[in-house]
């Protein structure tokens, strides 16, 4: 659904001929920022739960954290930060008129997103291999609090992974628009919005990574 939202933003300039409102990149970005605000609050609910439970069960959270793979998560962090850089560069590339460079930078961004998901699936797969997921005997045998940690681990990284997927699709849609020329040197608010969304995905991971893998 987020795709539809951001996409509809871009369509602002090209809608029905009967409306003749001027192209207003500032307004389009205000809409996007408000939307990002709701995304932050969506994750905010989970962060509150995490904060309360980690305060209630500091030792169990520490124990849960020790089961997670720091190298994999570090590599993923590296992937996401790099992709955030390339999408920012792609905007500059388009503004200076270099469409080809813009497209290849966006391709690289999507590749990073895909790489992130592949690593993530290996990480989850290893846990599934040990039956360490909600509903199993192993899970219910854990200390109360440690099992809550794993519930939150799956929910929060899962919801984040979903946002990575949506962001990847969104970037693909923007690439199509750039190659067709509807997003171009003059009208690039859609690309900027996709960039903003991708930075949000990156930023949430920047908080998830230390909370789950390092602080514990």
């Amino acid at each position: 659904m987020s795709t539809a939202v951001v996409n509809a933003n871009s369509a602002h300039d090209s809608h029905d001929a009967e409306h003749h409102m001027p192209y207003d990149p500032m307004g389009i970005k205000i809409g996007m920022w408000l939307f990002l605000f709701t995304e932050l609050l969506l994750f905010g609910g989970l962060f509150i739960i995490f904060a309360v439970y980690s305060h209630m069960y500091p030792r169990e959270f520490h124990q849960g954290s020790s089961h997670l793979s720091v190298p994999m998560a570090t590599f993923n962090t590296f992937l996401l930060i790099t992709s955030s850089m390339t999408i920012a560069q792609s905007i500059t590339a388009l503004r200076t008129g270099n469409k080809k460079l813009c497209l290849s930078l966006l391709t690289f961004t999507i590749a990073c997103a895909a790489g992130f998901l592949v690593v993530k699936s290996f990480e989850w797969g290893a846990k599934f291999h040990h039956d360490l997921y909600p509903g199993t005997e192993v899970y219910f045998a854990l200390q109360p609090g440690e099992s809550a940690f794993f519930s939150l681990y799956y929910l929060m990284t899962g919801l984040h992974a979903l946002h990575v997927i949506i962001g990847g699709i969104l970037i693909a849609v923007v690439m199509r628009a750039v190659s067709k020329g509807t997003v171009n040197q003059e009208k690039y608010a859609f690309l900027e919005n996709a960039g903003l969304y991708w930075h949000l995905v990156d930023l949430i991971w920047i908080y998830l990574f230390p909370l789950f893998y390092l602080v514990g």
């Binding site: 069960y57 909600p134 929910l155």
Partner: peptide
Amino acid sequence: GILLLLVMMEKVFGIPVFDPRIGGD
């Protein structure tokens, strides 16, 4: 939105968050 999502997750996929058995509140 997130809260309703959590209820659905618990109901459909069995991922408890507020269940006292796992230390939930």
